[in-house]
Every structure is written in structure tokens, then in C-alpha cells.
Simulated scan of single mutants.
Amino acid sequence: MKKLYATEEWKRRSSKRSLRTLKRKRKSCKYSGGKEEESKEKSEEKRNSKSARASYENVKKRKGRIEIKAPANFSLINNIDETLLFFDTVHYYSTKNQQKIYFDLSEVKELTTDAILYTLSRLEYYHERRVNIIGNNPNDETCDNMLLASGFYKYVYSQRVGKTPSDSNIYSIESGSTVLPQKAQEVKNFAARCLNKSDLSDTRSIYTTLIECMANTKHHAYAARSLHSKWWLMASYDQNSKKIHFTFLDNGFGIPRTIRKKNTEKINEKLREMVSKVVAVESLDAILINSALKGEFRTQTSKAYRGKGLPRIYETAQQNKIDTLVIISRKGFVNSSSREVRPLKRIFYGTLLSWQFL
């Protein structure tokens, strides 16, 4: 697999194929990235933003800016409801005001890699829409050092760019738009060094899992309205548990919007959309994610050789090569290790995969 993805011929053919596919899908409104899907996206954003404004209390209106305080436990894995409420509140004020938005991270006591990557994803979204966002650093020394070591400041305008400390226990943030075998190999080498594993076969699952994530991003995640895909990757080693934590994020439409649905599911979805305008209705996104994860035939292309990425990752988890596999996308949260499949109250934009290497 390594040789296949590393060849220049494969990269060239893959790029051309992806470009042709995206151009073709642009012409079809039936595709999840078409006009109909964009309309759904805007409607959901509007509903979520309104409810966020009414629910979130940590907002202060200063002269010339809106200050929004991040939760003390700034984590999607451990505190997803409050963290998504924070981001929804930011989104509301980004659409209603011409003032600056101030990310107040000063009281963050717990910070995880998933929250760091999602913050970057949303900041890029607002940057493209010319929303002026500034912010501060966590007062907590551990959180502040983690944010520095992660390489976060390389991706935003900051005076702290040159102050990034080296931390041998953190593989700093990398991003890309295609399958990058060299980055997957770097992460594999990072894991082998941290865990003192000289046998390459022990860490092979890391390489293959990351390649599958990158390939999924290229083939499935992105709307026809854009020809540019984007993913972020980060890893960290916990000396106490002796485990390496991996986080992979893409900012596409998400798994529930890009998989093939059965006719009954489509009808159910339409009914839920109509009812949700009047009363709160639980989303089916978590069930769809779990279905795609377990390998049910869900690829939109209807080709049997596609849609294998998530099932392969799930198979790796079932073989106990990775642990605590969590997937968050749209309004769905799935933890394959604890078998938790639950709907979310708010939208997570994109798809996040988080897991630990044993």
C-alpha cells in the first residue's frame, strides 16, 4: 500500500480523477454539495445560531468587539455539548455584527487536540468570509504550552509564531488536501520512537489508518462547490498511560451528508426536517455514521470498491490495534469502543476521528 500511494503516477491520476469527479458533481443538485444541500446547511446554521445566542451566557459586549469565553473544559471528546455551544455562539455573532470577535481562552483548564484542530478549521472558515477574529492564550501553563507546542500559531496571525517550544511528546499540526504518504510515515516514526517499538509491523496500522483518513477526505468529504479539500492531523504521547492519541479532522459536509441513504431514510429525513421547524427532533446522523463504520454499502457512487475506508479503520479497532475510536460528524457522535451512539444537539461541521494506539 505504501508503494502504491507514494508513486508519482498514482498521485497524478488520483488528482485528475478527483478533479473530474468534482466538476461532474457540480452540475448535479442531487449531490450533497449542490444548491439544495447548501440551502439545508444555511437553514441549520441559522437555527443553531439563534438557539446558541439564547443559551450561552459567557458573552460580553465591549467597545468595538464581542468577547466570547471558551469553556474551562475545552474539548469535543470530553465536553462536546458545551464546546459546540461555544462555536455556535461565535457563528451567530459572526453573521450579525461587523465588530471583531474575541476568542477568550483565558480560563481554559483542560485542552484536547480535537478542540485545537476544530478551532483552526472554524477560523479558516471565518477568514474566507472576512470575519475579524482575535483572541488570547490560556492562563493555565499546561494548556498554554500545549497550544504552543501543537504548532497552532503557525496557522494564525500571531506574534508567538517564533516562540513555539519543541516537545518530543507532540507531533505538531500538519494539514493537506491530498494523500500524503510522507506525513503518515512521519507520524508512524513518531509513534515508534515514543513507544520504543523497533518492529515496524507493530506500527503499520498507524500508517494504513492515516492513509485511509486522507483518502476518505479526497474522495468523500468535499462539496461540489469547492475544488479544494483540507484536512488537519495531530498526535500526542501520554507518558502516564503510555499511549499515543491521534486526531484527524476534515472540514467537508460530513459523513451523514455524503453517504448513500435508503429510500425510507430519505423520507424519514424529510419528515424530520419539517417537524424540526416546530419542535426539537433528534438527528439520525449517529446511526448513519455507525452504519457506514460497520461497512454497510453506503457509498454515493454505488461502486462496490468504494466506501471501504471507514470499515477498514473499524476493522483495525476490532483487532485491538487501536483503542477508543471516536467519530464526530454533523449531529452524530459514535464511540466504537464503548459502543456509544448518540445524537448531538448542535452541528459539528466536518468529520473528526480520534483514536489511541495501544
Rank of each mutant, 00 (worst) to 15 (best):
K60V: 08
F348S: 14
Y349R: 04
T247D: 06
L111A: 03
Q159H: 07
Y5T: 06
E82Y: 13
K50H: 09
I328R: 11
R13K: 13
V179R: 01
P71M: 13
G309Q: 04
E269K: 09
I211Y: 08
L195H: 11
F297N: 15
S205M: 07
N136T: 09
S201M: 01
V108A: 13
L111P: 05
I287D: 00
R13F: 03
I101C: 11
K60I: 01
C29K: 05
R24M: 15
K42E: 11
T351L: 15
Y314E: 03
K154R: 14
S338D: 10
Q98P: 03
T208L: 02
S150A: 11
L233A: 01
E107M: 06
D104A: 00
A286Y: 04
T301H: 02
R20L: 00
L117E: 06
I267C: 12
T258Y: 06
K61R: 13
T142C: 02
Y157W: 02
E9Q: 11
R257A: 12
V90I: 05
D144G: 11
R298M: 01
E45A: 13
A6V: 12
R346N: 13
N263V: 06
D140G: 08
R20I: 04
G135S: 07
N196T: 06
S205D: 14
L4D: 09
L105Q: 07
T164C: 00
I173Q: 12
S18E: 00
A280N: 12
E45L: 13
